[in-house]
Design a protein around this nucleic acid. Sequence first.
DNA 1: AAAATTTATCGTATTTATACGATAAATTAA
DNA 2: TTAATTTATCGTATAAATACGATAAATTTT
Lengths: 111, 111
Amino acid sequence: MAIAKTNEFTQQEQDLAAFAKVLSHPARIAIMKVLAKENACICGRIVEILPLAQATVSQHLKELKNAGLIKGTVEGPKSCYCIDWESMDKYLQEFNGMFSALQLQKGKSCC
Amino acid sequence: MAIAKTNEFTQQEQDLAAFAKVLSHPARIAIMKVLAKENACICGRIVEILPLAQATVSQHLKELKNAGLIKGTVEGPKSCYCIDWESMDKYLQEFNGMFSALQLQKGKSCC
DNA sequence: AAAATTTATCGTATTTATACGATAAATTAA
DNA sequence: TTAATTTATCGTATAAATACGATAAATTTT
């Protein structure tokens, strides 16, 4: 996309955009739902449920993990991914906090 | 990205992913903040504030509008964009609703 | 009417995301 | 030890996003 100007925005804007970006794919939202619902947090179980190849699911899991939405460990042929609620709560609080702040200025709108 | 499998997910997953996608760029978050703060909702004002060319800002505005986060009208050489709070509230409610539901299952986590 | 102003759109270059097959890596089962 | 199982990573093809200059379109101003 030509030169990325991401770092010319505030840290808050970058952080919230990054949070939104991880959730900007239905597969990653579906994975979050599976991780919350199922008691088995193995990659294979997710592959069974999602209409995606194992490599693709693994890639999505990596992105969720890098962003801090989930945490996971791999022990040999097994994996265990779970939602990192401590991190998620921070994100959600920041996210909702911003929109709450915007909503307080509702009156100023010119249309 | 090879064949997109977007429509193999549930409508809710697609909708929330679409909502997150619009907010997945710092410029669009910055635009939302400007629209809430400033009383002048013209494109030119946003161009002044953001580190982006006019064409790029116009493109971001279009995406925000298409997703329903903002509404706007153009009268000749002027434009007037504002946050569509009715639509935004629905999105935020759906978004938070999902994570609240997931959070209720916290106990089931295996890690 | 002509010039200036403001915004949307078009075309295009470049970067990033998405998806998967193949394969490696690490363990468990036989 | 060998085979089977499970997951991560690599390489790669293709699609989508990002950014902007140029230009068109629609007024307002002069």
